[in-house]
Design a binder for these strands. Sequence first.
DNA 1: CGCGCGATTGAGTAATTTCAAATCTAGTGG
DNA 2: CCACTAGATTTGAAATTACTCAATCGCGCG
Lengths: 194, 194
Amino acid sequence: MDAKHLLRQHIAKTVALTDEQFEHVYAHFEPLSYKKGQALIAEGDVVTSEFFVVQGCLKTFHLTNELKMFILQFAMPTWWASDYQALYSGQRATVGVDCVTDVELLRLSAENREKLCHELHDVERFFRWRTNWGYVAAHKRLLSFMSTDVRQRYEELLKQYPLLYQFVPKNLIAAYLGVSRETLSRLYQSRHEA
Amino acid sequence: MDAKHLLRQHIAKTVALTDEQFEHVYAHFEPLSYKKGQALIAEGDVVTSEFFVVQGCLKTFHLTNELKMFILQFAMPTWWASDYQALYSGQRATVGVDCVTDVELLRLSAENREKLCHELHDVERFFRWRTNWGYVAAHKRLLSFMSTDVRQRYEELLKQYPLLYQFVPKNLIAAYLGVSRETLSRLYQSRHEA
DNA sequence: CGCGCGATTGAGTAATTTCAAATCTAGTGG
DNA sequence: CCACTAGATTTGAAATTACTCAATCGCGCG
């Protein structure tokens, strides 16, 4: 699936754009490719864009004391990623975004997003809904983080992304779950036994 | 500040509505009063509305095994609260919303929200931005939950809501921070000493 | 063959939880 | 005004859990 069609379908789930409208919208995106390990946003950056993942996997994360990494989310195809706090407030990035695998993505600047939202009511609606789902996902994750133990979060993660487990190093999984890799290692051993 | 003016000002921070437009919008809200302890949404409910807090304080929370309570957020005046997952997906509520104090609020049904969003592009924009800020806040909280210890989260909470500490029972504070009330109690003792 | 990196294992330590008991506080009725 | 009760808060001590740090294992690559 190429970037254009993927975005087309993704938007179509929320609002119906005519072909011309979509062409106009699409013209405001910039297709980009990155290699595994490259950074799209580093902490401290000024953030001007958000990214729509076409292929591959991104992670958004935060480093404490330059020591421990915490992963807020993995972004798979059709997901969006950025430091939205920085993007909307103009502050410096407090979270980084980089490539877990080689990725193909579409870049949209905040400027273009606002332009499109003004031009087309339907685009504004699309972004409202997209953000809504993001909000719901963030709350779900917060809740899962607060109220369930590591064991359960691990199960949930495997259920949600069966693939992730295969190509993502265990220390990243641990950083997503919020435990040390040693603890994670011990967890899925006892799981395998059961 | 009465409900109408508060909502007016709140919206004005994002978009400029004419008086007639605002009157039209306001007509879709229902002013309501509740007493401390009353539930606006109980887990398992079908959710049809969201709430704009005019006065008082709400909490959104989840109960595990009917035993432990985890508070996702406190909603103060000009904040919105609901189970947005339930509201947008039609599923049953997984989080409850109830009154920490006596509250005055404005109820907006999902139906009316969508109607208004269709009628006025600016209202759609308002809700996009509102949800954006909610999304950012949720991520901030997730990050704070993952990467900082209880002690720091406690300090942050006090800084963010100096008032909260006075009228909210400690067990709710503990449920917000994600620790037992015993641990919280021990924490702010050693803090007082320092 | 050996190096290097990710993953695992072990042992000791630090922090939080749980459960139980003691203490405190505000509101009520006598 | 005081005693009393219910709910909230604090304290203590044992048990659990994850963490750290260090050592070992396993495997791919030069």
